[in-house]
Simulated assay, not measured.
Amino acid sequence: MDVETSYAKLYMDPDLHHSSGYFREGVVTLEEAQKKKVDVILERLRLQEPSLRLLDVGCGWGATAIAAADRYRADVTGITISQYQHTYARTRISRRPTAAPLVEFHLRRWEEFTEPVDRIMCVNAFENFENKEEFLPHCRRLLRAEGRMVMLTVTADRPIFRVAPSGRIVEWAERAGFDVEISPSLAGDYARTLDLYVGNLRARRNEVIALVGESRFIRQVDYYSRCAGFLRSGINDMFEFTFTLR
Rank of each mutant, 00 (worst) to 15 (best):
D2K: 06
Y7N: 11
K9C: 04
L10T: 02
M12Y: 01
D15R: 00
H18D: 05
H18Q: 12
F23R: 09
R24C: 07
G26K: 15
V27R: 11
V28P: 11
T29Y: 14
Q34Y: 00
K35V: 03
K36R: 13
K37D: 00
V38A: 06
D39L: 02
I41E: 13
L42F: 12
E43Q: 14
L45M: 03
L45A: 01
E49R: 09
L54P: 10
G58F: 06
G58I: 01
G62L: 01
A63D: 07
I66P: 05
A67F: 03
A67V: 02
D70C: 12
D70I: 11
R71V: 12
A74W: 15
I79T: 05
I79D: 03
I79E: 00
T80L: 08
I81P: 09
Q83T: 05
Y84D: 09
Y84Q: 10
H86D: 01
R92K: 15
R96D: 07
A99W: 14
A99K: 15
A99T: 07
A99P: 08
A100F: 14
P101G: 06
E104G: 05
F105V: 11
L107F: 14
R108I: 07
R108T: 04
E111V: 01
P116I: 15
V117P: 03
V117L: 08
D118R: 09
M121N: 10
V123K: 01
N124M: 12
F129C: 08
E134M: 15
F135E: 14
F135H: 10
F135G: 13
H138A: 13
C139G: 10
R141T: 01
L142N: 04
R144S: 07
A145G: 14
E146T: 08
G147R: 05
M149V: 03
V154P: 00
A156V: 08
R158F: 13
I160A: 07
I160D: 01
R162K: 10
V163H: 03
P165W: 08
P165A: 14
P165L: 12
G167C: 15
G167W: 12
V170Q: 09
V170P: 11
W172F: 06
E174L: 04
E174N: 08
E174T: 07
R175Y: 02
F178Q: 05
E181A: 15
I182D: 04
I182Y: 08
S183Y: 06
P184A: 11
S185F: 08
L186G: 06
L186E: 01
L186Q: 05
A187F: 03
G188H: 07
D189H: 07
Y190P: 00
A191H: 00
T193W: 02
L194F: 02
L194W: 02
Y197W: 11
G199D: 05
G199K: 10
N200K: 09
N200C: 10
L201H: 06
R204E: 08
N206T: 09
E207S: 12
I209L: 12
L211W: 05
S215K: 15
S215F: 09
I218L: 05
I218N: 08
Y224D: 01
Y224T: 11
R226S: 02
A228T: 00
A228N: 00
F230R: 08
G234N: 06
F241Y: 03
T244I: 11
L245M: 14
L245N: 04
R246M: 12
